[in-house]
């Protein structure tokens, strides 16, 4: 009975702190999710997720494997639409606009909310064409020199330009894993998104490549809303300002990263961070 009471209390505390403007500093809230549920066929993968995601900050999703981090991330840019049998409930709003409303243009939404995947997945095209792909389909460049500029600046922002400037016409698949992942980040940036979702972007990379990407995330934070899924506590602590802990399809706890790591309210969060579940 006591435990149950404690649980209810912490949950409401979470919501309180999520809504608490002082905790958000002066950051504006870009994304709000309320009671989001996801079913894969008959199996429920997410149970009533409610979270606010602030602008110009990195929000980290942590939690044991299979707890629904990727699933929730895919809800945010409606990538779950491409999975047969996936059903999403609840509401998610981007700048107050319901992204699941029937008259929203999904394709345009995905241009506003970019995504970087766990495994680098460059297209089987040249480095240049990989980055130019998004701008081309969205008609962002009026002429060739415009496009060149977008490509170069995106590669620069992704910290890849110096390494590949002499081989832009070579296939993107010929790069190393870390370079490919930065290429994918450049590709996402090139579309000019407002939000960037990253699903374990460093899981296939060595520590040095990881450090490069973390630095990059830190720079991108100045201009974008970033959500990152990670299995590394250290990475979450290093790059994020806010952290949300998922467990078995529930959002257990969320708050400023320092608080979650130094002073978690929930026992499960504490156990996970100390490495006792996972």
């Amino acid at each position: 009975m006591d435990m149950l009471a404690g649980k209810i209390k912490t949950t409401s505390q979470n919501l309180d702190s999520a809504m608490n403007p002082t905790d958000m500093l002066d950051r504006q809230i870009r994304l709000t999710a309320r009671d989001v549920t996801v079913h894969y066929g008959t199996k429920q993968a997410l149970h009533g997720i409610s979270i606010d995601i602030p602008d110009r900050a990195v929000t980290a999703f942590i939690g044991p494997s299979g707890c629904g981090k990727s699933t929730f991330l895919r809800c945010i840019n409606r990538m779950n639409d491409t999975i047969e049998g996936a059903k999403v409930g609840g509401t998610i709003k981007l700048d107050g606009e319901d992204i699941y409303s029937p008259d929203l243009d999904v394709v345009e939404l995905r241009a506003r909310i970019g995504m970087v995947f766990q495994k680098p997945n460059p297209f089987p095209k040249s480095i240049y064409d990989n980055v130019a792909y998004g701008p081309r389909i969205h008609g962002l460049a009026r002429n060739k020199s415009d496009l060149d500029e977008i490509v170069v600046s995106s590669l620069r922002k992704a910290g890849l330009f110096e390494e590949v400037k002499d081989r832009l016409q070579e296939p993107g698949t010929g790069l190393s894993g870390g370079q490919q992942q930065r290429l994918c980040i450049a590709r996402a940036i090139a579309v000019g998104p407002e939000v960037i979702l990253m699903d374990e972007p460093c899981s296939a990379l060595d520590p040095i490549a990881t450090a490069v990407i973390e630095e990059l995330i830190d720079e991108l934070r100045e201009n974008y809303t970033i959500v990152i899924v990670t299995h590394s506590m250290q990475q979450a602590a290093r790059v994020s300002q806010r952290t949300a802990f998922f467990h078995l399809g529930h959002l257990i706890e969320q708050g400023p990263t320092e608080d979650i790591f130094t002073n978690p309210v929930n026992k499960q969060t504490q156990d996970y961070i100390m490495g006792r579940i996972g």
Binding site: N77, T82, R110, F117, H138, A188
Partner: peptide, 13 residues
């Protein structure tokens, strides 16, 4: 599938 996802993720139809 990851290639398709990459394109969808960029807002391709």
């Amino acid at each position: 599938r990851s290639l398709r996802d990459g394109a969808y993720g960029l807002g391709a139809t």
